[in-house]
């Protein structure tokens, strides 16, 4: 029990810091590819008095700034407006505890961790929907409508994709999928279809381009975030940092785990995965909602189904004997 009192804050703290670092990577690479400067890695000597030596934790400073502001409420917004960011944050804190971080399952093995984590990840769009719908903003309402459509399309691909990995490892425990890959090849090579489907679903889950339709500033201001400010928005951003960490780590756990030294390769894999996300984010404009939904049903869903069939084939089918 004492171990949990120390362990939970350490793991959640690590997850949050890693989320902020991944976000820094996205911001920096995105800026450099657009020939902008982005948050400074090394602050020039003259500016260090005000800015400190580095702006790697820029997103953290942004969140801290939000916590210093006061929230305004629309009279017509309901109490779920306040609850939504905390639901998101709470579920993401729980999700970090179930992960296997770079070969270390801090809280041991749990038989159905993959099922639980997919439900916990599902609460992020749900909390956005609750928050946006209860904010009584017309932009929030439109954005919620879009989020429901988008969520239904990417969640299916995501769930089928991760269960293809579970089928290969014959277990619904993340730790056991990791352990299984340690003895064979990474599942990215064995079942690239499922990996690709999960990758695209992650782009959708993070609302990166081309799937940031729900937050399209040119059309609906900030969508569900329009009425959010200060601490509540800060809480949403903090949960988004944890979400980034959870999704990156989950992908590494399920598809690209290479056991050499615990944690060492995790950072490299995490960096490369976020680089891939950033590349998509940089080269893509935003889909309209109907186009996004149709794209998700045309490509990631089909990939996920191929991945599922491929996993089944490997497990029971013609190649079963060879395997």
């Amino acid at each position: 029990m004492e171990w949990l009192v120390i362990g939970i804050p350490v793991v959640v703290g690590f997850a949050f810091v890693m989320g902020v670092l991944y976000d820094y990577e996205i911001r920096k690479l995105f800026a450099r590819m657009q020939s902008r400067r982005g948050p400074l890695f090394i602050v020039p000597r003259d500016l260090r008095g005000g800015l400190g030596t580095t702006r790697v934790f820029q997103t953290l400073y942004d969140i801290l700034k939000l916590f210093s502001k006061s929230q305004t409420f629309r009279p017509s917004s309901s109490k779920y407006f306040i609850a939504a960011p905390f639901i998101a944050l709470g579920c993401m804190v729980l999700a970090t505890l179930l992960l296997d971080i770079g070969g270390i399952s801090v809280f041991g093995d749990y038989d159905f961790s993959m099922v639980v984590i997919s439900y916990l990840l599902f609460t992020i769009p749900l909390s956005l929907i609750i928050g946006g719908a209860s904010s009584s903003s017309p932009f929030g309402a439109l954005s919620v409508r879009r989020e429901i459509e988008l969520m239904l399309s990417y969640e299916v691909a995501f769930v089928i994709g991760i269960f293809s990995a579970a089928l290969l490892a014959n277990s619904l425990s993340i730790a056991r999928v990791v352990a299984y890959q340690a003895n064979t090849l990474p599942f990215l090579l064995i079942n690239p279809f499922a990996a690709a489907a999960v990758f695209f679903a992650i782009v959708g889950k993070l609302h990166m381009k081309p799937f940031d339709t729900t937050e399209a500033e040119a059309e609906i201001v900030s969508g569900y975030f329009t009425e959010y400010s200060s601490r509540l928005l800060g809480t949403f951003l903090a949960s988004r940092m944890l979400l980034l960490f959870v999704l990156v780590t989950l992908f590494i756990d399920l598809f690209v785990f290479i056991p050499v030294v615990p944690l060492l390769l995790y950072f490299v894999e995490g960096f490369l995965f976020v680089l891939a996300l950033t590349l998509v984010h940089t080269v893509m404009p935003r889909y309209r909602i109907d186009q996004a939904v149709s794209w998700f049903t045309r490509i990631p869903l089909v990939l996920a189904l191929i991945g599922l069939v491929w996993s089944l084939t490997l497990k029971y089918g013609l190649l079963g004997a060879v395997w």
Partner: peptide, 16 residues
């Protein structure tokens, strides 16, 4: 024009 479609990269390069 490309920025309203969310293509910020095109926007930055064009303004550059």
């Amino acid at each position: 024009f490309v920025n309203v479609m969310g293509f910020t990269t095109g926007f930055m390069l064009s303004w550059r």
